[in-house]
Write a protein that binds this DNA or RNA. Structure first.
Length: 842
RNA sequence: GCGGGUGUGGCGGAAUGGUAGACGCCGGGGACUUAAAAUCCCCUGAGCUUUGCUCGUGUGGGUUCGAGUCCCACCACCCGCACCA
């Protein structure tokens, strides 16, 4: 192999990509006898261009997929497109293009970008959720769910833009106004489709326990999201003669209730016949619907004049309408205990309501007043109930049980488990989504489409210049005959939430029959996904919905698997510093390619002016701190880009992009190439130390890849590279070079193939088995022992591995440095950790 | 507001409760070269009275022979919050 030829990614990358494609190297064979490994990364939304975050995500999955293949697995590593969504409709409105054309163009472009990175993907299984051969099956599954009783319709609120006459997503509501029109957004009730995810609340919660290979944080987040709580539901008798059911998780504090509050939507609130009440309810309805907005908003209330009778004290408590009470949780009404709930405390303070203490550190402090907000809602562990008649002196837990017992005995209510999880609203009043396969008939009501009429495809002839959902005004599409009575009927014009599309795509990857959503036998072969990789932003919604959908299918007997993703990994974002300067009072941002970066300053290439280097933050278009994968592949080649994605930062943490970093990676690619080029198959002689290093590295890199610790694997490879470079020619060194090629092959596949071929090795390195490790070479026979005195390192000594405690102690005490430190003091204790350290205590 | 996470040199980070800073980047010095690029070698946490000593893992406490790691309290920043994907 000639050493003066430089590795040229521009020619090598496409050459090897073609070779893999022609050999069908990464095609998954479901009939293979090998153990199966399904490696999946969250599929991208085709926004137009691959984002560097995708590159990081798919590179990680790719390394694992290639490693799994090398270790004897039949690997399924597919790719597809989460292709429905709002941006396509926005593009249609802004640029006058069709959402379908825009989306398909984007897919084509992004697919080409992915191919340039040399990912080991089985493109024969590619799918796009916007195609009828995908969403038609989704419609069938939706009807199955309906027939299984898991789909229903109910009224639900949406953000309504009165100017654009359209429903807005939460992200389209900015400070309570429509993002395009600027009009004050209203809340409006629509009849919408829901999936009964709450039927599975208990299962989804318990299932988390089996997901040992999910990050604890994600499991915890889902647990909190599902939010199982045990409490008490009971009714107050109201002064108007009605009963008001309330739910509380703190029945032990019932004697601390000083008022009652209902949500603005609550029937009690709605029934108040006064101008002021209606105005107040309207006030509550303004602004966004998100939890964050509701809970950070100033606490507001309206005294209804109604009172509620306390079931034990008989006191008349005022009933307020309050903007912080949620209609969706519990009964939409609460007993408010300002002494022991932060929100109630704020409210009571504002409206001058009493704040009684019913929990105290001990009985002696029962009279202690609240000295401020800090105490409200504080941790009550170890505390006792006070000022609460028959509950006085009980622990919080005992008091809960006692109150529930008494309330049940008196027939006022019952202990009840309540979930924070709400049913999944899947209706979207938009064109670019899966049409919900139902028909509204005047005579028969809501009727599912006949399965043989699927797919119900989206009409192509739509325009987006008129506000609102084009499906609603598309007469030929909308008007159909009722599948039941044959009479006049209309199609449902809502489409499905795109989270539905991503709730089963992993099943469709496993098998793609034309006549059904999936083949149960094929699904059984591949599922669950062995390793799923994606962003932490999906920790709750997508991952919970996919788990639910899988369980619902299992519940209906369509599949066996209950949890779709055996292991989950959530990767960090790619970040970049920002460049900006003030121009005419405004902050103007500049893109990295407009900047020349020096050691501690950055200059604008255009005019040489200095710009401010801002914090390292998530790449975003508005801050212009983005880098384009195509550009960097052009400059450095796919392998350097892939190597950068794996280096330095642990994969779950953010990775700061830097020009210097990618250049370092690029240099390493060429450095390896020089080393590989120097490979001499005929070299003789043994180099035991190098053999040991090589085998240790193989074992460590394998371990690191399996744990997705790519940054650590990278560091090991650097170390081995340095060691091989320094070693004199020998058979061991030649073997080490061949091994190194294989170690980097999952990460830098193009370079590895080029080197593999250059060394005259058979076949593709992508098909080669992972190098074997000789366990005998993993053990060192000498170890370095740290000697501490007073907990600080004083000396190190070399000892044979497994040396006796007494020997180590003697060696440590013999050290001159140690003796100087001890300085004649009395030795009280010597701690010896074999093969590790000796600690002398004086 | 609620829930979750993160915090170690100039920077990214490494470290089963056992030698803090592996590995990479930046920077400094040197070799090679007419010169440059590339490459190679050495140095690179801070301070000091420099054979060595002291300090040092966001802050303050604690447990331990020994704490970046475990416990308690706090601070800062980041992410999610149900119609963004």
């Amino acid at each position: 192999m000639s050493s003066d030829t430089r590795f040229d990614p521009a020619s090598a990358d496409p050459r090897w990509q073609k070779a893999w494609e022609e050999a069908q190297t990464f095609r998954a064979d479901s009939d293979s006898p090998k153990p199966k490994s399904y490696v999946l990364e969250m599929f991208p939304y085709p926004s137009g261009r691959i984002h560097i975050g995708h590159v990081r995500n798919y590179t990680m999955g790719d390394v694992l997929a290639r490693y799994k293949k090398a270790t004897g697995h039949e690997v399924l590593h597919p790719m597809g497109w989460d292709a429905f969504g709002m941006p396509a409709e926005n593009a249609a409105m802004e640029k006058g293009v069709h959402p379908g054309g825009w989306t398909r163009n984007n897919i084509e472009h992004m697919k080409a970008q992915l191919k340039r990175l040399g990912f080991a993907l089985d493109w024969s299984r590619e799918l796009a959720t916007c195609e009828p051969d995908y969403y038609g099956h989704e419609q069938a599954l939706f009807i199955d769910l309906y027939e299984a009783g898991l789909v229903y319709r109910k009224e639900s609120e949406v953000n309504w833009d009165p100017v654009d006459m359209t429903v807005l997503a939460n992200e389209q509501v900015i400070d309570g106004k429509g993002w395009r029109s600027g009009a004050e957004v209203e809340k409006r009730k629509l009849n919408q489709w829901f999936l009964k995810i709450t039927d599975f609340a208990e299962e989804l919660l318990e299932g988390l326990g089996s997901l040992e290979n999910w990050p604890d944080k994600v499991r915890l987040m889902q647990e909190n999201w599902i939010g199982k709580s045990k409490g008490l539901q009971f009714s107050f008798d109201l002064s108007n003669g009605e009963k008001l059911p309330v739910y509380t998780t703190r029945p032990d504090t019932i004697f601390g209730a000083s008022f009652v509050a209902v949500a603005a939507d609550h029937p009690v609130a709605q029934a108040i016949d006064s101008e002021e009440a209606r105005d107040f309810i309207a006030l509550c309805k303004r602004g966004g619907t998100t939890a964050a907005e509701l809970e950070t908003a100033e606490k507001l209330g309206f005294d209804t004049g109604i009172t509620a009778k306390h079931p034990f004290t008989g006191a008349d408590l005022p009933v307020y309408i309050a903007n912080f009470v949620l209609m969706d949780y519990g009964t939409g009404a609460i007993m408010a205990v300002p002494g022991h709930d932060q929100r109630d405390f704020e409210f009571a303070t504002k409206y001058g309501l009493p704040i009684p203490r019913v929990v105290a550190p001990n009985l002696d402090e029962a009279g202690k007043p609240f000295d401020g907000e800090a105490e409200a809602g504080a941790n009550d562990s170890g505390a006792v109930i006070v000022n609460s008649e028959f509950l006085d002196g009980m622990s919080v837990e005992d008091a809960k049980r006692e109150i529930i017992r008494r309330i049940e005995k008196q027939g006022l209510g019952t202990g009840k488990t309540v979930w924070r999880l709400r049913d999944w609203g899947v209706s979207r009043q938009r064109y670019w989504g899966t049409p919900i396969p139902f028909i509204h008939c005047e005579a028969c009501g809501v009727v599912p489409a006949r399965k043989d009429s699927l797919p119900i495809t989206l009409p192509e002839d739509v325009d987006f210049q008129t506000p609102g959902n084009p499906l609603v005004r598309h007469d030929t599409w909308k008007h159909v005959d009722c599948p039941k009575c044959g009479g006049k009927a209309e199609r449902e014009t809502d489409t499905l939430d795109t989270f539905v599309d991503s709730s089963w795509y992993f099943l469709r990857f496993a098998s793609q029959p034309a006549d059904k959503p999936f083949d149960a036998e094929e699904v059984a072969k591949w599922l669950p996904v062995e390793q799923y990789i994606g962003g932490i932003e999906h920790a709750i919604l997508h991952l919970l919905y996919a788990r639910f959908w899988t369980r619902a299918l299992a519940h209906m007997g369509q599949i066996e698997v209950k949890e779709p993703f055996a292991s989950l990994f959530t990767q960090g974002m790619v970040t970049h510093e920002t460049y900006s300067r003030k121009e005419g009072g405004k902050t103007v941002y500049y893109a990295p390619d407009e900047i020349s970066r020096e050691a501690d300053r950055a200059l604008l290439s255009a005019d040489g002016g200095e710009v401010e280097i801002g914090r390292v933050i998530k790449m975003s278009k508005s801050k212009k701190n983005v880098v384009d994968p195509d550009t960097i592949i052009d400059s450095y080649g796919a392998d350097a880009v892939r190597w950068f994605m794996l280096s330095d930062s642990p994969p779950e943490r953010d990775l700061p992009w830097s020009e210097a970093g990618i250049e370092g990676c690029s240099r390493f690619v060429y450095r390896l190439w020089r080393l590989f080029s120097a490979h001499e198959g005929s070299a003789q002689g043994e180099d035991k130390a190098l053999d040991r290093k090589t085998h240790q590295t193989v074992a460590a890199v394998a371990e690191d890849i399996e744990a997705l610790g790519f940054n650590k694997a990278v560091a090991r490879i650097y170390e081995l590279t340095g060691a091989v470079e320094k070693a004199a020619p020998s058979a061991s060194r030649s073997a080490a070079i061949r091994t190194l090629v294989q170690l980097v092959a999952p990460m830098m596949p193009h370079l590895a193939e080029e080197a593999w071929a250059g060394m005259g090795m058979e076949g593709l390195v992508a098909d080669a088995p992972w190098p074997e490790v000789d366990p005998a070479l993993l053990v060192e026979d000498e170890v370095t022992i740290a000697v501490q005195h007073k907990g600080k390192l004083r000396d190190t000594l070399t000892a044979p591995k497994g040396a006796a405690r007494e020997d180590l102690e003697a060696m440590a005490l013999a050290s001159e440095k140690v003796q100087r430190s001890i300085d004649g003091a009395e030795i009280r204790k010597v701690i010896v950790v074999p093969d590790r350290l000796v600690n002398i205590v004086t």
